[in-house]
């Protein structure tokens, strides 16, 4: 059970990762990340159903995410630069509705199945030797998530663009002063977040079907981010695992006493309790208010 929760947590981590990327580079809490996951997955299955081979469909979906990144930068971010964070947050809620509408308008609202060709069945060898029930699919999913985190970590720390991204996160003004183009950075980071959304969408979609419920992922990512801190990639991963594991455990151990179904709100209450103790998250930086 714990393992199952942890694997669900891997998925939460992936969504949270998309949030962290954008938050780090632009200070925007992107509520539309869930909608992007939905949009990316739906676009992929849409092209597949039109007869495109899997890899072409993925490439086309990625192209759509790139277009979305340019669109968002131009229409939402650029006009709202230097506005309060809360305004940008509300703008991304609007963006989420917009993307959801476009996605369903283009591809229809029915649930689509997605087959990645990885069997979702227990690995017998593990089952026999350790008694753990882990499906091949979950293992592959975790592997992909781990690889993604590693790639992003390298990207942020070792590449020129990555360093520029971090500079922007630290101080917009200063970054501008040393000649970093904010607009370019934003587009890049939204493309990367779009890519993460695509991966997330494919994995979740293969597991649960590509459907509107994917957008609710965005909501589960909120407590993940609070636990992990808004600016830490490692935090997003750890936070995702904690939320995934704890909601399953809570469901098993507390659920029966109160009628079940507490998965829907438990992560929020957990995050809230955590906030009261450590408002900056596990890996976040404490800030001092200056007057």
């Amino acid at each position: 059970m714990l393992i199952g929760g942890l694997l669900a947590g891997v998925m939460y981590s992936l969504v949270a990762l998309g949030f962290v990327l954008i938050y780090k580079a632009s200070g925007v809490f992107n509520f539309a990340q869930g909608a992007m996951v939905f949009f990316a997955a739906l676009t992929t299955v849409g092209f597949i159903s039109m007869g495109a081979p899997f890899w072409l469909a993925v490439a086309l979906a990625l192209l759509a995410m790139v277009a979305l990144a340019f669109f968002t930068e131009r229409v939402v971010l650029r006009p709202l630069v230097n506005q309060p964070q809360i305004t940008l947050f509300m703008a991304t809620i609007g963006l989420a509705f917009f993307i959801e509408g476009i996605a369903q308008l283009t591809w229809g609202a029915q649930v689509h199945a997605l087959d990645l060709g990885i069997a979702d069945e227990p690995i017998e060898w593990l089952m026999r030797n350790t008694g753990m029930n882990i499906s091949k699919f979950d293992l592959v999913a975790s592997g992909i998530a781990a690889a993604l985190v590693a790639v992003l970590a390298v990207f942020f720390n070792k590449t020129r663009t990555g360093r520029a991204l971090r500079a922007v996160a630290d101080d917009h003004q200063a970054a501008l002063a040393v000649g970093i183009s904010l607009q370019r950075i934003w587009v890049i980071v939204w493309i990367v977040a779009g890519f993460v959304a695509l991966v997330t969408g494919l994995l979740w979609g293969a597991r649960n079907g590509v459907q509107f419920a994917l957008t609710f992922l965005a909501l589960k990512a909120l407590p993940v981010l609070i636990l992990g801190g808004f600016e830490s990639i490692a935090g997003a991963v750890v936070g995702g695992l904690i939320v995934g594991a704890s909601e399953k455990l809570a469901e098993v151990y507390i659920g029966p006493h109160v009628g079940g179904g507490i998965e829907s709100w438990f992560p929020y209450v957990l995050a809230l309790a955590f906030l009261l103790v450590r408002p900056e998250g596990l890996f976040g930086e404490r800030r001092i208010d200056r007057v």
Partner: peptide, 23 residues
């Protein structure tokens, strides 16, 4: 679903429009 999706899109676009043009 066309109308409901268009409404969704319009809501989203309006929110962004108002936040940008007339907060």
């Amino acid at each position: 679903g066309l109308v409901s999706n268009l409404t969704l899109i319009l809501f989203g676009a309006l929110i962004i429009f108002f936040l940008v043009v007339e907060p």
